[in-house]
Simulated scan of single mutants.
Amino acid sequence: MSAIQDQFAALMRHKAGTEPPPVLTPALARKLIARLDGVRLFAHGYALLTNLTQGQIRPADLLEFAWHHELQGLCLHVLDGEENSLSQMNNAQLRAFGARARDLGLDLHVEISTTQHDSVDRAVHIARSIGSRNIRVYSRYEGRLSEVMDRIEADLRYLALLADRYDLNFDFEQHEELKSHEIAALLRKVDHPRLNALFDFGNMINANERPLPALRALAPFIRQVHLKGIRIVPQGNGTGHYGVLQGSPEDDMPGPRMFYELLMLGEQTAQVVAFALEQENHYVAPAFRQSDEGADPFIPYREMSDTGLPPGLTLDSMMAGEHRWLENQLAYMRGLIRELRLLAELVLAEAAQPVTRSTELMGEPQ
């Protein structure tokens, strides 16, 4: 194996346990270059949540950040920003927000933390008002797993009706309490092309899954991705997680391997349309699923995600830190993209094959 393949293998083995690394053949190198050239990085409101809820940052400022850093869009929860959030804007303000995003060449993806009909209806109104065709959802039902799955299935069927009626896409996130194969089973059962999945880099840990098997279980449906770093925290017979800087020594995720596998999803066209920078430093998430649970475990109710003020930080230092941590994540991801592209170019050079700049896109802008 050449030194180039050794370097690529080392990157793919990082925090990946015993997973054998792929061999970067010339054919794969060409596909990888095409995907890297078209990768669509989005800003995410959660990375600046303290600033949005308690500081001077407004949703419109996130648009300027995304444009300034040459990102392709913004993922924003309808409640981010409290009284300044999308949920509090009137129709004229929503249209103006969407118009500003279009002026900057940015796509908007809406997020909510439920699948209940009234909240979904409001999110649809917001999405249509700002010109978005993508809504992230996840469920927060309490009860036996079988009961929760039945309720989610009914909700997904309602989403399918709205998706067809309003030309929308709904992406269901694996959000700590459901396992990836359970979400995949629901999506297969409903079987609607506009209902897919959002893959988060850490949430599978709380469902007592491992990162790469979880990714592969959900792979046929993944359209969006939340990028972040986490430290795995054992809790009883399960695991929780603590938010850390992505790519730092504390980050327990096989980040480069997951990013590579997600990039390569889709045969002719890239399957993932958005990789969102959701740095969640100091976020605390408890274990939800246990290794010794029965076939139909009880799923407890979960509150919406929030990051409290950690010990040792003041409100001002937390808000300043969020800006720094987001810049850190963007630098890390762009460094990873450069490294992967260089390795792919070297593989092609080693095989004496010319490299041309790709025009492939990471899926159609939504």
Score class of each variant (00 low, 15 high):
residue 106 L to E: 11
residue 147 E to G: 04
residue 155 D to T: 07
residue 116 Q to C: 13
residue 156 L to K: 01
residue 157 R to F: 03
residue 112 I to A: 04
residue 139 S to A: 14
residue 114 T to K: 00
residue 108 L to C: 08
residue 153 E to N: 09
residue 149 M to A: 12
residue 144 R to M: 12
residue 159 L to G: 00
residue 106 L to V: 10
residue 161 L to S: 15
residue 150 D to S: 11
residue 129 S to W: 01
residue 121 D to G: 12
residue 160 A to N: 01
residue 148 V to N: 05
residue 135 I to F: 07
residue 133 R to H: 13
residue 113 S to P: 08
residue 136 R to A: 10
residue 125 H to T: 15
residue 114 T to G: 02
residue 115 T to F: 06
residue 141 Y to C: 12
residue 118 D to V: 11
residue 158 Y to N: 10
residue 128 R to G: 09
residue 143 G to Y: 01
residue 134 N to L: 15
residue 110 V to H: 01
residue 124 V to T: 10
residue 122 R to N: 12
residue 119 S to Y: 09
residue 162 L to E: 10
residue 141 Y to V: 09
residue 161 L to F: 11
residue 116 Q to N: 14
residue 153 E to P: 03
residue 159 L to M: 05
residue 108 L to V: 14
residue 130 I to H: 00
residue 141 Y to S: 11
residue 122 R to E: 15
residue 140 R to K: 11
residue 124 V to F: 00
residue 146 S to N: 12
residue 147 E to T: 10
residue 124 V to M: 02
residue 149 M to W: 07
residue 144 R to C: 10
residue 156 L to Y: 02
residue 148 V to T: 04
residue 133 R to N: 11
residue 155 D to M: 08
residue 147 E to D: 13
residue 112 I to W: 05
residue 124 V to I: 14
residue 137 V to A: 04
residue 162 L to W: 00
residue 133 R to P: 03
residue 159 L to T: 03
residue 144 R to H: 12
residue 159 L to I: 08
residue 147 E to I: 08
residue 136 R to L: 15
residue 158 Y to Q: 09
residue 156 L to Q: 10
residue 148 V to D: 06
residue 109 H to W: 15
residue 135 I to C: 09
residue 154 A to N: 14
residue 117 H to S: 15
residue 126 I to L: 04
residue 148 V to M: 03
residue 111 E to Y: 02
residue 121 D to I: 07
residue 126 I to T: 06
residue 105 G to P: 01
residue 152 I to K: 00
residue 138 Y to N: 12
residue 153 E to H: 09
residue 155 D to G: 04
residue 163 A to D: 09
residue 118 D to P: 04
residue 147 E to H: 10
residue 154 A to T: 15
residue 146 S to C: 08
residue 130 I to E: 06
residue 132 S to F: 05
residue 118 D to C: 09
residue 105 G to F: 04
residue 110 V to T: 06
residue 135 I to D: 05
residue 128 R to K: 13
residue 160 A to K: 00
residue 153 E to M: 07
residue 160 A to P: 01
residue 104 L to W: 02
residue 120 V to W: 01
residue 113 S to E: 15
residue 140 R to W: 09
residue 105 G to Y: 03
residue 113 S to Y: 11
residue 123 A to V: 10
residue 147 E to R: 04
residue 148 V to P: 00
residue 154 A to R: 14
residue 134 N to M: 15
residue 110 V to W: 02
residue 141 Y to G: 07
residue 120 V to C: 04
residue 106 L to I: 10
residue 143 G to C: 02
residue 121 D to W: 00
residue 121 D to P: 03
residue 155 D to C: 08
residue 131 G to K: 01
residue 131 G to W: 00
residue 122 R to Q: 14
residue 136 R to E: 13
residue 150 D to E: 15
residue 120 V to L: 01
residue 161 L to G: 15
residue 158 Y to L: 08
residue 140 R to E: 11
residue 134 N to G: 10
residue 147 E to M: 06
residue 143 G to I: 07
residue 143 G to K: 03
residue 126 I to K: 05
residue 113 S to A: 15
residue 113 S to V: 15
residue 110 V to F: 07
residue 106 L to M: 04
residue 160 A to I: 08
residue 123 A to G: 02
residue 106 L to Y: 05
residue 116 Q to Y: 09
residue 106 L to W: 06
residue 152 I to G: 01
